[in-house]
Amino acid sequence: VTTYKLVINGKTLKGETTTKAVDAETAEKAFKQYANDNGVDGVWTYDDATKTFTVTE
Protein backbone atom coordinates (compact mmCIF):
# COMPACT_ATOMS: atom_id res chain seq x y z
CA VAL A 1 0.00 0.00 0.00
CA THR A 2 1.33 3.40 -1.05
CA THR A 3 0.24 6.92 -0.14
CA TYR A 4 -0.71 9.07 -3.13
CA LYS A 5 -1.27 12.83 -3.09
CA LEU A 6 -3.76 14.94 -5.02
CA VAL A 7 -3.11 18.64 -5.63
CA ILE A 8 -6.27 20.52 -6.59
CA ASN A 9 -5.95 23.75 -8.58
CA GLY A 10 -9.63 24.42 -9.09
CA LYS A 11 -11.48 27.62 -9.83
CA THR A 12 -13.25 27.50 -6.48
CA LEU A 13 -11.42 24.70 -4.66
CA LYS A 14 -7.68 24.58 -4.01
CA GLY A 15 -5.73 22.29 -1.74
CA GLU A 16 -4.30 18.85 -1.23
CA THR A 17 -5.51 15.48 -0.03
CA THR A 18 -3.98 12.03 0.23
CA THR A 19 -5.19 8.47 -0.08
CA LYS A 20 -3.64 5.07 0.50
CA ALA A 21 -4.03 2.64 -2.40
CA VAL A 22 -2.53 -0.55 -3.80
CA ASP A 23 -1.63 1.16 -7.08
CA ALA A 24 -1.85 4.44 -8.99
CA GLU A 25 -4.92 3.33 -10.94
CA THR A 26 -6.87 2.73 -7.72
CA ALA A 27 -5.73 6.07 -6.30
CA GLU A 28 -6.72 7.85 -9.51
CA LYS A 29 -10.26 6.43 -9.32
CA ALA A 30 -10.60 7.60 -5.71
CA PHE A 31 -9.23 11.06 -6.52
CA LYS A 32 -11.45 11.49 -9.59
CA GLN A 33 -14.48 10.59 -7.48
CA TYR A 34 -13.36 13.08 -4.83
CA ALA A 35 -12.91 15.81 -7.44
CA ASN A 36 -16.27 15.03 -9.02
CA ASP A 37 -17.99 15.13 -5.62
CA ASN A 38 -16.47 18.58 -5.09
CA GLY A 39 -17.38 19.94 -8.53
CA VAL A 40 -13.81 20.02 -9.86
CA ASP A 41 -13.44 19.15 -13.55
CA GLY A 42 -10.08 19.78 -15.14
CA VAL A 43 -6.91 18.45 -16.72
CA TRP A 44 -5.21 15.61 -14.85
CA THR A 45 -1.49 14.88 -14.63
CA TYR A 46 0.45 12.29 -12.63
CA ASP A 47 4.07 12.28 -11.47
CA ASP A 48 5.15 8.74 -10.62
CA ALA A 49 8.38 9.89 -8.95
CA THR A 50 6.42 11.77 -6.26
CA LYS A 51 3.20 9.72 -6.47
CA THR A 52 1.32 12.98 -7.02
CA PHE A 53 -1.76 13.63 -9.11
CA THR A 54 -2.65 17.20 -10.07
CA VAL A 55 -5.99 18.43 -11.40
CA THR A 56 -6.14 21.94 -12.86
CA GLU A 57 -9.34 23.70 -13.94
Rank of each mutant, 00 (worst) to 15 (best):
K32Y: 06
I8M: 08
N9D: 10
V40L: 11
T18M: 10
T56Y: 10
G42L: 03
K11I: 11
G10R: 04
N36F: 13
F31W: 02
W44I: 03
W44L: 03
T19C: 12
V55H: 01
E16F: 12
G10Q: 06
G15Y: 15
T2N: 13
K14I: 13
K32C: 05
V7W: 05
L6A: 02
K29R: 15
Y34D: 02
E57C: 05
V22C: 08
Y4K: 01
K5R: 12
Q33H: 10
D41K: 13
E25M: 13
Y34G: 01
Y34N: 02
N38H: 14
L13H: 13
N36R: 14
V22Q: 11
E28P: 00
A27P: 01
T52L: 04
K51S: 06
A35E: 01
V22G: 09
K32F: 06
W44S: 00
K20M: 15
E25T: 12
V40C: 04
T18W: 09
T19P: 01
K51Y: 10
K32H: 09
Y4V: 01
D37T: 10
T17G: 05
A24L: 10
N36H: 15
L6P: 00
V7N: 04
T18A: 07
T50A: 09
E16K: 07
T2A: 13
V1H: 12
E57M: 09
A30R: 08
A30W: 15
A35K: 01
T45D: 09
Y4A: 01
E16H: 14
D48M: 08
V43D: 11
G39D: 07
K32W: 06
T56I: 07
E25L: 13
A24H: 09
Y46N: 00
I8Y: 07
D37A: 15
I8K: 01
A24F: 12
Y34Q: 03
K11V: 12
T3C: 10
G15P: 05
G15D: 09
F53Y: 06
T17M: 14
K51M: 07
N38A: 14
G15N: 09
F53E: 00
E57K: 04
T17R: 11
E28A: 12
I8V: 09
V40M: 06
W44T: 01
Y4F: 10
T45W: 08
K14M: 09
K5W: 11
E25K: 13
L6V: 03
G39M: 07
A24W: 14
G39L: 05
Y46R: 02
T18I: 11
T56R: 05
T52M: 04
I8F: 06
D23V: 03
G10I: 14
Y4E: 01
K20D: 12
T18G: 03
T50W: 04
K29I: 10
T45F: 07
D37K: 11
T26R: 06
A49R: 08
E25D: 11
F53T: 00
A21S: 06
T54F: 05
V55K: 00
V7Y: 07
K5M: 08
V1R: 07
T54R: 05
Y34P: 00
T52E: 03
T12R: 09
T12Y: 15
D47A: 04
G15V: 15
G10N: 06
V55L: 10
T17H: 15
G39T: 04
Q33L: 10
V55Y: 02
K11Q: 09
K11N: 11
E28G: 09
A21R: 03
G39W: 05
T26Q: 13
V43M: 09
T52W: 02
A35W: 03
T12L: 13
V22E: 14
Q33K: 13
G39N: 15
A49N: 11
K51C: 07
N38W: 14
V22H: 13
N38M: 15
T3L: 13
A27F: 00
V22T: 15
T3I: 13
F31K: 00
A24E: 07
F31L: 06
L13I: 14
D41G: 10
T17Y: 13
T54Q: 05
G39Y: 06
F53W: 08
T56A: 05
T26Y: 06
Y34T: 03
D23A: 04
D41A: 12
F31E: 00
T18V: 08
Y34H: 05
A27Y: 00
V40D: 02
K32R: 15
Y46V: 01
T19Y: 14
Y4H: 02
T19R: 06
A49G: 08
Q33R: 14
Y46S: 01
D47L: 04
E57L: 10
D41W: 12
G15I: 12
T56P: 01
T52I: 07
F53L: 01
K11S: 11
E28M: 12
G39F: 07
Y34I: 05
V1Q: 15
N38Q: 15
E25R: 10
D41S: 12
G39H: 10
N36K: 15
E28C: 12
A49C: 06
W44G: 00
